[in-house]
Amino acid sequence: MSTILLIEQLLNGLQSGLMLFLMAAGLTLVFGVMGLINLAHGSLYMVGAFACAGVAAATGSFWLGLAASIAAAAAAGAIVEVAVIRRLYARDHLDQVLATFALILIFSEGTRWLYGSFPLYLNVPPSLSGSVTLPGGIQYSLFRLAIIGAGLAVAVGLFLLIGKTRIGVQVRAGEADREMIAALGVDIRRLYTLVFALGAALAGMAGALVGTIQSVQVGMGEPVLILAFVVIVIGGIGSIKGALVGALLVGLTDTMGRVLLPSLFDLFMETSAATSVGAALASMAIYILMALVLVVRPGGLFGARA
């Protein structure tokens, strides 16, 4: 494999990792601050994609669609938090899993009710379509570059938000000791709603960006949800830094596994069989990675608590 191809594949891994980070950041924040397992996070991703497709189709502007996706997901997140999630903080993980599983059913079937079963159209805006030539002669999709940029920007923004702002202080305090910050006079209910809506907005944004280059359809959130869980478990639940490292690890492992494993098996097997076996192993690669990490470090890479 040429160096240029290798670099291109690394970029691809980076891009898919950063999108996973947008999903994982919300999940890990919600778990870290409120101690809640939210299976319905993938539904918020779907809400973002549908809102973007809907608004983009109505107005003809992708950018309005993107704004709508963030707004719609944040609003959906806030509503769900106030109506349902709030009652689950004091419950055990089992109740949380079941209740948010119920939310998945409601969101998926509700969306199908509104939009029907056919996939929606959503495409890259003209200003970001096509590909550019990077230094070294790599041809790379402009939109994917933009996704990488957006992902990095969100990551920096989140670190600043958590590290430098008042809300960030409250969030970190909440992770450390929930009773404590209530005693300090922080309106904890408002903080929780805010954190949940923030996580939802990030998921909605990821849904819109990824939906643009993939397909917008009911159920699109579930595979991503599982991956996002893998990410936060590898990184250590509750840690934003862990989510970032975990997301990049998963993105790179998945991409490079798909590319390299079949070639590896090709060295000592017949081509058809090698590609098949290699692809099979590649699809298991991230789960093997996760199991390895957990066996060596049962609390994830940057885990504060189990």
């Binding site: 291109e8 041809q139 280059i213 798909r258 590319v259």
Partner: peptide
């Protein structure tokens, strides 16, 4: 070249790079 992708896969950046190459 023959390539098998994962069932349900949604991102094909890696495969597209291979095709171009």
């Amino acid at each position: 070249n023959e390539v098998y992708t994962q069932l349900g896969q949604t991102d094909y950046a890696a495969e597209i790079a291979q095709i171009r190459d």
